Amino acid sequence: MKYYLPLIAVASVALLSACNKNDEPEVVGGPADPMAAELANAAPVELPPSVKANKQFRCKDNSLIFVDFMTDDKTANLRTEKGGSPTKLVAAEAGRPYTADGFEVSGQGDAVTITVPGKGAQACHV
């Protein structure tokens, strides 16, 4: 056993010394990218906004509304049930009410006014 360890070490050093030590990168020829010009002239990509704040509001009629406010201050997702599917609300500009399909959320703080189809506008708070 004592004689095998030095032999294994010598063999591994010999194998590693056979590696290519050339520092220059290997260039492999290939076809040119057909979309290179289009990609170079493409408009920058805008990432979708992320969630800025998740709020759960209790409204005047004792219902719960769940709103996710996004970082762009122009988009919010509203859910009428905790695990329900969201309704995307969009504001014309930052600070304006978020609206879509009869839904409306006015404000971003802890007290907002929410309009849900069939219920009308009501005050809601965190």
Results as ranks from 00 to 15, higher is better:
residue 14 A to C: 13
residue 1 M to K: 02
residue 71 T to G: 01
residue 99 T to W: 03
residue 95 G to I: 08
residue 84 G to C: 07
residue 96 R to T: 09
residue 34 P to H: 11
residue 61 D to A: 12
residue 122 Q to F: 05
residue 125 H to Y: 09
residue 39 L to P: 02
residue 30 G to I: 13
residue 74 K to A: 13
residue 68 D to W: 00
residue 123 A to N: 09
residue 26 E to C: 03
residue 15 L to C: 05
residue 117 P to Y: 11
residue 58 R to K: 11
residue 43 A to L: 14
residue 101 D to R: 10
residue 98 Y to N: 04
residue 97 P to I: 10
residue 19 C to R: 12
residue 93 E to P: 00
residue 14 A to R: 07
residue 105 V to C: 01
residue 31 P to C: 04
residue 35 M to E: 14
residue 98 Y to G: 00
residue 116 V to P: 02
residue 120 G to L: 07
residue 57 F to Q: 02
residue 107 G to E: 02
residue 30 G to F: 12
residue 34 P to E: 14
residue 41 N to C: 01
residue 11 A to G: 09
residue 31 P to Q: 14
residue 1 M to Q: 04
residue 81 E to I: 00
residue 9 A to I: 12
residue 80 T to V: 15
residue 23 D to C: 06
residue 64 L to Q: 11
residue 40 A to G: 09
residue 6 P to T: 01
residue 4 Y to V: 14
residue 92 A to W: 00
residue 85 S to T: 10
residue 74 K to G: 01
residue 33 D to A: 14
residue 22 N to Q: 11
residue 7 L to F: 13
residue 109 G to Y: 06
residue 5 L to N: 04
residue 118 G to P: 08
residue 82 K to S: 11
residue 114 I to C: 03
residue 80 T to M: 11
residue 68 D to V: 03
residue 49 P to A: 10
residue 118 G to I: 03
residue 118 G to T: 08
residue 115 T to F: 05
residue 39 L to T: 07
residue 70 M to S: 06
residue 74 K to D: 03
residue 33 D to I: 10
residue 53 A to R: 12
